[in-house]
Design a protein around this nucleic acid. Structure first.
Length: 236
DNA sequence: CGCCAGGCCGTGT
DNA sequence: ACACGGCATGGC
């Protein structure tokens, strides 16, 4: 346990979560019908609005490649065309093909087999892939493989920084991903592992929901349902 | 027209 | 260890 946030930070973050639950209610993430669809969505939504991702997901469904075998056999150039609407298509197409290669080589081409392996092993394998950073790896672990890991994102970073949940030496700098993850872990450390999956699921969905709810980037936002401090903490 | 989006990576200090 | 620019399209 290193880089410990100052005392009480985890509890304060937990209270923010409780408030978000009350205000926004269940988010029912991840919006996907299968584990591989979650994986694909996790890649496509990198720095991309979910609206744009859905267009690509429709393309993949219509082309019959919204499954492991489909991704295995489709050519990279064809894949690029299908996912073009969600941007960065060249990198994302190559990245998705690399994921299937890893799945085939290390996990018998099965997401279920992958999910049965220890979290640290799967996480390190995912992070070794091109186009997979900590957030994408954790999103896959949590939402596709149902491992109890938190997912940190830019919205959580803003909340944590602006509510001063970091130790003094870290203030002024950007919170690292690992620090955010550690803080999230501590916020739910009182919960049994089984429940943590659901809480981490909801937590990340809610931080995104707050970001989306920031009413079109206008400074005033009179109709925002949240108190001003939390509201402002998520706006860019 | 400009900014933003459910990041990641290579490069430069 | 950070900060910064590129990646690319679609919505608003």
């Amino acid at each position: 346990m290193k880089e410990v946030p100052h005392v009480g930070a985890a509890l304060r973050l937990r209270r923010i979560y409780n408030r978000l639950v009350r205000v926004y209610g269940p988010q029912n993430w991840w919006p996907a019908k299968s584990a591989i669809e979650v994986v694909i969505g996790a890649y496509l939504t990198q720095n991309t609005s979910w609206r744009s991702v859905e267009i690509s997901l429709d393309n993949l469904r219509n082309a019959g490649v919204m499954n492991i075998q489909g991704l295995r056999t489709i050519g990279t150039e064809d894949l690029k065309l299908l996912i073009r609407p969600s941007g960065f298509y060249s990198r994302k197409a190559a990245a998705l093909k690399a994921f299937i290669t890893l799945l085939d080589n290390e996990f018998s081409g099965s997401l279920e087999t992958m999910s049965e392996q220890p979290t640290p092993l799967v996480r390190s394998k995912l992070l070794s892939l091109p186009g997979v950073g900590p957030e994408t790896a954790d999103a896959i672990l949590l939402y596709a493989l149902e491992h109890p890991v938190p997912v940190a994102d830019e919205y959580l970073r803003r909340i944590v920084e602006r509510h001063d949940l970091l130790v003094p030496p870290a203030r002024g700098k950007r919170a690292s991903y690992d620090t955010l993850a550690e803080l999230s872990e501590q916020a739910f450390a009182d919960q049994p592992l089984r429940n943590r999956i659901e809480h981490f699921n909801e937590f990340h969905a809610l931080t995104v929901a707050v970001g989306k709810a920031h009413c079109g980037r206008t400074p005033d936002c009179a109709h925002c349902p949240l108190a001003d401090d939390l509201h402002q903490s998520t706006s860019k």
